[in-house]
Nucleic acid binder design. Structure first.
Lengths: 200, 200
DNA sequence: AAAAATGGGTGAGTAATCCTCACTCGAGTT
DNA sequence: AACTCGAGTGAGGATTACTCACCCATTTTT
């Protein structure tokens, strides 16, 4: 009797997820039909609705898997780094880097899911918030330790940082331009930190 | 002979635009059907396609009108303000304020249009860029005059500022929370400026 | 060992919805 | 009086997300 073995997904489900993921490399979600997904997966359309509530739920599930990966990767990346400022720099780099290397993930998160209100009430959205809270806690620790200014609401700082990253990436993703994680991190941190670091 | 009198829109067109604008107060674009728009406008569905290429084009036209208004309002607001930093503060306030008072505009710009690639190749998107360039020019003037740091690409600064604003507003719009322009401007400027202003 | 349940998978169809096309009507214009 | 032109219509077509009844193999129960 193995401990908490979440049973593997059935082959049909895997094929459907893979098919949509692959199709998203080529065209936007709205332009992909369920018939197309089924054909590429080698299953029937009806099977999609056995495993997913609707077409958007399928998209949400794909995003969920990405986000879980990304969340634990972020935590790993931060281990062993000392100081809030250094942690933030690393988090920013990791964020740029994941968008840079995983365009489909970036597209889904920044473009596809946002246009429907129900995403923001979905299970998947709580994962986004979880990630966002990693940064919030780093900021709050930094305020506690005196490394970060205490005269600005921590949530504003968080939103400004995340908003900066996403806005910088958005056009690059839309127009398929490169995202140079190293230099972008350098520039953005250089810009933001002098505002964050306690003066004197 | 009057100068460049762009002929007024036909009544049917106006009714269609008004109908969709009103419906957008209540529900999201994707949930609004062409039949619904036509019914609310008191015209037939076919008329929509006389004046607009498709349903999204109608949305883009509405956004265009908003943007043109907003662009000239912004320019007006900036007149008489001395100093790049002061201009940026004013622009940030105006930006928060327009989202605060005009939720439909905010929803369209931040949520509805982004999910389709062709928006970014549309006429309407050039208006967004025009607005964005106002800020870029202010920043570049500030660099020239020595008021703003010259060691960070001006476009990064612009994107960080706009991204911050939009990210801060997004959740507030999604969850229908208040946008307090005054205090948000205060906090955001306080955060960003010390990073922007030339030290020493 | 027979029966029942379970779960992966299918084929055929339906309802909704965006959009098109051929057309009408009335107000100028020549 | 014939013609053009712009506003507007009605009926229908094509696409597509989604549903429902059903099949078949494997596992579980009796």
């Amino acid at each position: 009797m193995e401990a908490t073995k979440s049973k593997p997904h059935p082959p049909g489900r895997i094929k459907i997820v893979d098919a949509l993921t692959a199709l998203l490399e080529q065209k936007e979600f709205n332009a992909i039909t369920t018939a197309e997904i089924a054909k590429n997966a080698g299953v029937t359309e009806a099977l999609i609705y056995k495993y997913f509530k609707d077409k958007r739920d399928l998209l949400h599930q794909i995003l969920s898997a990405f986000l879980k990966d990304y969340h634990s990767k972020t935590l790993d990346d931060l281990r062993g780094i000392k100081g809030s400022i250094n942690k933030i720099r690393k988090l920013i780099w990791t964020h740029f880097n994941v968008y840079s290397t995983n365009r489909v993930f970036a597209r889904i998160l920044l473009i596809e899911v946002r246009s429907h209100q129900d995403f923001f009430n979905s299970e998947t959205y709580t994962l986004v918030k979880d990630y966002s809270n990693i940064l919030l806690h780093i900021i709050e620790d930094g305020i506690q330790s005196g490394e970060i200014r205490d005269d600005i609401p921590s949530k504003i700082m968080r939103q400004s940082i995340l908003g900066s990253i996403e806005h910088i990436c958005l056009t690059r993703i839309i127009f398929n331009r490169e995202i140079l994680s190293d230099s972008l991190t350098e520039d953005l941190c250089n810009f933001l930190f002098i505002g964050i670091e306690k003066q004197g």
